[in-house]
Amino acid sequence: MAYKTLVPEARAGLDKFKMESATEVGVNLKQGYNGDLTAREAGSIGGNMVKKMVEAYEQGLK
């Protein structure tokens, strides 16, 4: 997936975060092209990432 990061230096961290999230939800994500993933698999990765970001934000509010 091509996305534009606001902070280019953050790309490696985002990629690592994405790989960790894929592992947690049981999706075999590989470096490079992942067009063979189903929409459900890709969505579960993104959903897990958002869930973790919201949790981290909420923890920061406490």
Score class of each variant (00 low, 15 high):
Lys4Ile: 07
Met49Ala: 04
Glu41Ile: 00
Asp36Phe: 13
Lys16Tyr: 05
Tyr33Phe: 13
Leu14Ala: 09
Glu24Lys: 03
Gly60His: 00
Gly35Trp: 11
Gly43Tyr: 02
Lys18Ala: 10
Lys30Cys: 04
Glu58Gly: 01
Glu58Ser: 05
Tyr3His: 13
Asn48His: 10
Lys4Leu: 14
Gly46Gln: 06
Val54Met: 12
Thr5Trp: 12
Glu9Lys: 15
Tyr33His: 09
Pro8Gln: 11
Gly43Ile: 03
Gly13Phe: 08
Ala42Arg: 05
Lys18Phe: 07
Val50Thr: 09
Pro8Glu: 13
Asn48Ala: 11
Ala2Pro: 14
Lys16Cys: 05
Gln31Ala: 08
Gln31Met: 04
Ala2Trp: 14
Lys62Tyr: 01
Gln31Arg: 02
Gly47Asn: 08
Ala22Trp: 14
Gln31Asn: 04
Thr38Met: 11
Leu6Met: 15
Leu37Glu: 08
Met49Asp: 01
Thr38Pro: 07
Gly26Glu: 04
Gly32Asp: 04
Gly35Gln: 11
Leu61Cys: 07
Thr38Ser: 15
Asn28Asp: 02
Leu29Thr: 01
Leu14Gln: 09
Pro8Thr: 08
Val25His: 13
Gly43His: 03
Thr23Gly: 02
Ser44Pro: 07
Met1Lys: 11
Tyr33Trp: 12
Arg40Asn: 11
Lys62Glu: 04
Ile45His: 01
Ser21His: 10
Lys52Gln: 15
Ser21Glu: 14
Ala56Ile: 08
Lys51Cys: 03
Glu9Trp: 14
Ile45Glu: 00
Thr5Val: 06
Gly13Met: 10
Arg40Gln: 12
Val25Glu: 14
Lys51Asn: 04
Lys52Thr: 12
Thr5Ser: 11
Ala22Ser: 14
Glu58Trp: 06
Met19Arg: 11
Val54Tyr: 10
Gly13Ala: 09
Ser44Lys: 13
Asn48Leu: 10
Gly43Phe: 05
Val50His: 11
Asp36Cys: 07
Val25Met: 15
Gly26Cys: 09
Gly43Gln: 04
Tyr57Cys: 01
Gly43Thr: 01
Asn48Arg: 09
Leu14Asn: 05
Gln59Trp: 01
Gly43Ser: 05
Ala42Ile: 03
Phe17Cys: 12
Tyr3Cys: 15
Gly32Asn: 02
Glu20Thr: 10
Gln59Phe: 06
Val54Ile: 15
Lys51Trp: 09
Asn34Phe: 03
Ala56Lys: 14
Ala39Cys: 07
Met1Thr: 04
Val54Ser: 02
Tyr57Glu: 02
Tyr33Thr: 03
Val50Asp: 08
Val25Ala: 13
Gly47Phe: 11
Gly46Trp: 01
Gly32Leu: 06
Leu61Trp: 06
Ala10Asp: 06
Gln31Ile: 00
Gly47Trp: 10
Ala10Cys: 03
Ala56Pro: 02
Leu37Trp: 11
Lys62Pro: 00
Arg11His: 12
Glu41Lys: 04
Lys51Val: 02
Ser44Glu: 13
Asn48Gly: 06
Tyr57Asn: 01
Glu24Arg: 03
